[in-house]
């Protein structure tokens, strides 16, 4: 469904991703693992064309994404949930959801405000509150809900477990499993191996912008040296 081939991305002169390539099949949940600065966020931003890869190819359902403006990438059915959440703090929860709303899409689950409030009951009670009045966990839920309003086929979740309370992390894991059941393809970036194992089918480990491992979790456990070298446990 999503394929990356030899992607090279830069921030100014800094070479962040070098010849990165992996693919994600329909309905899969893939965990992108790696330390801080390994290039996980840049990978996601490169897919969304928020960072323009200097070379390489990124295809989504056969369509090349490289060079498209971000809003066109989103309209193809890619939903991006940024690590910093970036909710609109002066807008209410309902208004935040409205910004994300896009027409319903063939081959993707169709979300409505009501179904999202079922998925995230806490948001319902605070639907008229402004984004800045929400807690970290609520903001994280809102940003996922906002992206789901676009009815994406593939969801890019950047470090969803970061900076939120353990109870909410667990809730988040359930939510991701539920999204998978709905038929959504998901890529999550994580530093937390435990969390990744709970939700993902497969792990891709990157370090210094290069792919170091691509396989299932049992395979990863069979090679503890990889885990020790590239992940902080």
């Amino acid at each position: 469904m999503l394929e990356l081939h030899d992607v090279n991305s830069y921030y100014g002169k800094a070479h962040i991703l070098s010849d990165l390539g992996f693919s994600v099949g329909r309905g899969q949940v893939v965990a992108l693992l790696g330390r801080n600065g390994a290039g996980k966020t840049t990978t996601m931003k490169s897919v969304m064309q928020l960072v323009r890869p200097r070379s390489g190819e990124i295809r989504f359902d056969g369509t090349s994404l490289v060079g498209l403006p971000s809003h066109k990438v989103a309209r193809l059915g890619l939903g991006y949930v940024p690590e910093e959440r970036r909710i609109f703090s002066d807008l209410t929860i309902l208004e935040n959801l409205e910004v994300g709303r896009q027409p319903r899409r063939q081959g993707a689950p169709n979300w409505k405000v009501e179904t999202l409030f079922e998925l995230f009951p806490n948001l319902w009670e605070r639907r008229h509150n402004r984004g800045k009045a929400l807690s970290g966990g609520e903001q994280q839920m809102l940003t996922i809900a906002r992206t789901l309003m676009g009815n994406p086929k593939l969801l890019l979740l950047d470090e969803p477990s970061e900076g939120i309370a353990p109870v909410i992390v667990e809730q988040m894991a359930h939510t991701i499993v539920r999204l998978k059941q709905e038929g959504l393809t998901v890529i999550i970036s994580e530093q937390n191996l435990h969390f990744a194992r709970m939700v993902a089918d497969r792990a891709v480990i990157i370090e210094g912008g290069e792919k170091k491992f691509d396989g299932s979790f049992p395979e990863l456990e069979a090679q503890p040296e990889i885990r020790d070298a590239y992940l902080s446990v």
């Binding site: 969304m48 928020l50 403006p69 809003h71 002066d90 910004v99």
Partner: peptide, 16 residues
Amino acid sequence: RAATQDREMVGALGVN
């Protein structure tokens, strides 16, 4: 109003 705060994010949500 959303664009006033974060243009890039509005774009990433599919708005031109």
